Simulated scan of single mutants.
Amino acid sequence: MDHPETVTHQGILDIEGRGPAWESCPHSCSELLGGLLTGETRSFYFDEFPLPDHTFDPNSDIL
């Protein structure tokens, strides 16, 4: 695995907060999030996605 400093493409670089591990993703933040939610994108750091079921919970009760 190359070092994060050598990544030349635009995208997202997920870096482990307490260790040396990192993962490069050639997508924008919104593309990464959408891909994780639909299962089109797999990630070491977000391995629980896609969730078996997810719902939208509005915040209207607290506004």
Rank of each mutant, 00 (worst) to 15 (best):
M1T: 10
M1A: 12
M1Y: 07
D2Y: 06
H3C: 00
H3R: 03
H3A: 14
P4V: 12
P4A: 14
E5T: 12
E5Q: 12
T6K: 05
T6C: 04
T6N: 11
V7I: 14
V7T: 09
V7D: 13
T8I: 07
H9M: 07
H9N: 09
G11E: 15
G11H: 11
G11A: 13
I12P: 01
I12G: 01
D14P: 01
D14A: 10
I15N: 02
I15H: 05
E16L: 06
G17V: 05
G17N: 13
G17I: 10
G17A: 12
R18N: 15
R18K: 08
R18S: 15
G19R: 05
G19L: 07
P20H: 02
P20S: 08
A21S: 09
A21P: 00
A21V: 12
A21M: 11
A21E: 15
E23R: 02
E23L: 00
S24P: 01
S24A: 15
C25S: 13
C25D: 06
C25F: 11
C25A: 08
P26H: 03
H27W: 10
H27C: 06
S28C: 04
S28E: 02
C29L: 14
C29M: 15
C29A: 15
C29G: 00
S30L: 10
S30W: 04
E31I: 04
L32P: 00
L33I: 14
L33P: 00
L33R: 06
L33M: 09
L33Y: 08
G34F: 13
G34H: 11
G34N: 14
L36I: 07
L36C: 09
L36P: 01
G39C: 02
T41L: 15
R42E: 15
R42K: 15
R42M: 12
R42C: 14
S43N: 10
S43C: 08
Y45F: 14
F46M: 05
F46T: 05
F46Y: 13
F46A: 13
D47L: 03
D47C: 03
E48N: 10
E48Q: 13
E48A: 05
E48T: 12
P50K: 01
P50F: 02
P50R: 00
L51V: 12
L51R: 03
L51C: 14
P52Q: 08
D53V: 06
D53P: 00
D53W: 04
D53F: 09
T55W: 10
T55C: 07
F56S: 09
F56K: 00
F56R: 06
D57L: 13
P58E: 06
P58W: 04
N59W: 13
N59Y: 10
D61T: 12
I62P: 02
L63D: 05
L63I: 04
